[in-house]
Amino acid sequence: MSDTTKSKIKYLYTNYSIILIFLIMFVLLSIFVPYFFTWRNMVGLALSVVTIGLIANTMMFALASGDFDLSVSSTVAFSGITAAVIINNTGNVGIGILVGVLAGGLVGLINGFSIAKLGLNALITTLATQMIFRGMAFIFSNGRAVGISQAGFFTLGNSMIFGIPTPIVIMVTFFVLFGILLNNTVFGKNTLAIGGNTKAAELAGINVDLTKIIIFTAQGFMAGFAGVILASRMTSGQPNAAQGLELDVISACVLGGVSLNGGIATMSGVVVGVLIMGMISNALNLLNVATFYQYVVRGSVLLIAIYLDILKQRSK
C-alpha cells in the first residue's frame, strides 16, 4: 500500500471511527434484536432522541468553545412550565410558545453573560442556574404538572409532516443548519478556534466574549424550544421533566468525538453520538431489560467511548 493511501485510511479511521462503530452496532442490533429494524421502531427511536438531539446541536458549540453547560435540563422544564402557564392564562398558543422559548433564551443569556463578562467558571455558573431554574419551574407550577387546555398546542409535538412526526423533522433540520453553521461560517470556525486556544483566538482578532455569549444564548433558546416541544408531546408542563438530561447530551457529544477540552467537534459525530445513545436504550427496552440495568449499560458505553477516544489521540 502506498503511503498516501495508508495515511488516508488512517485519516478516515481517526476521524470517522465512531460512524463505523455506529454502523456495526446498527447492523448487529437489526439482526439480533427482534422488531428493532422496523419502520415503527425506527420512528420511535428517532422520537426518543428529539430532546437530546436538539440540545446536542448547541451543546456541541459550548463544548467546542471549551465550556460546559449543565443548566439545559432545568431550562427544558422551566420553558415547558412557562409555556403551559402562559397558554392557560392567555389562551393563545403562539404567545405561549414564544414566551416559553424566550424564557430558555433568558437562561442562556444569563449563563453567557456571567461566563464571558463576569469571568465566572462555566461549570459552576451553569450548575447554579440549573438549580435556580429548576426551582423557578417548581415555583411557577406550584410543584405540580400543569395540564394544558388548548389542543392546538399539541400539534407541535404530535403532528406529521410527510408521514414523519414533526419533532423529528425539526431535529433533522437543526442538524443540517448547525452542521452548516459549524463548518461553513466564521462563527463556527471561531468557536473551534476559541476552544483550541482562547488567548490565541483573541489575539487573532476574534471577539471571544461575544462569541461565548451567543453560544450560551443559542443553547438557552434551543433548550427552551426542546422544552416547549416536550411539553406539547406530554400535553403538559412538568416541573420534574428532563432531570439528568444535561449528562445525556454531553455523553452523546463526547461519544461523537467532541473534545471536552474544546477545539474539536464534528456534526456527523454528534448525530451518531445521539443515535447511539438512543439505540442503546431502544434495544434494551425491546429486550425488556429493566431501567436500572440500562443506566449501567449506558455508563459503561460512555466509558468505553472515551477510552477509545484517548487511544485514538495517543496514536496521533
Binding site: 452548516i180 470556525k189 488567548k199 490565541a200 489575539l203 487573532a204
Partner: peptide, 28 residues
C-alpha cells in the same frame, strides 16, 4: 498565544483573513 495547536495549518492561516472572502457575507 499564537498558534491554535489542535487546528490545521490552513485554519491557523485563515483565522482572521477569511472575512475578506465570504459568500453572501456569511458562508466561508
Amino acid at each position: 498565544e499564537g498558534i491554535i495547536g489542535i487546528r490545521s495549518v490552513s485554519e491557523n492561516i485563515n483565522v482572521s483573513s477569511r472575512r475578506h472572502h465570504l459568500k453572501y457575507n456569511f458562508f466561508l
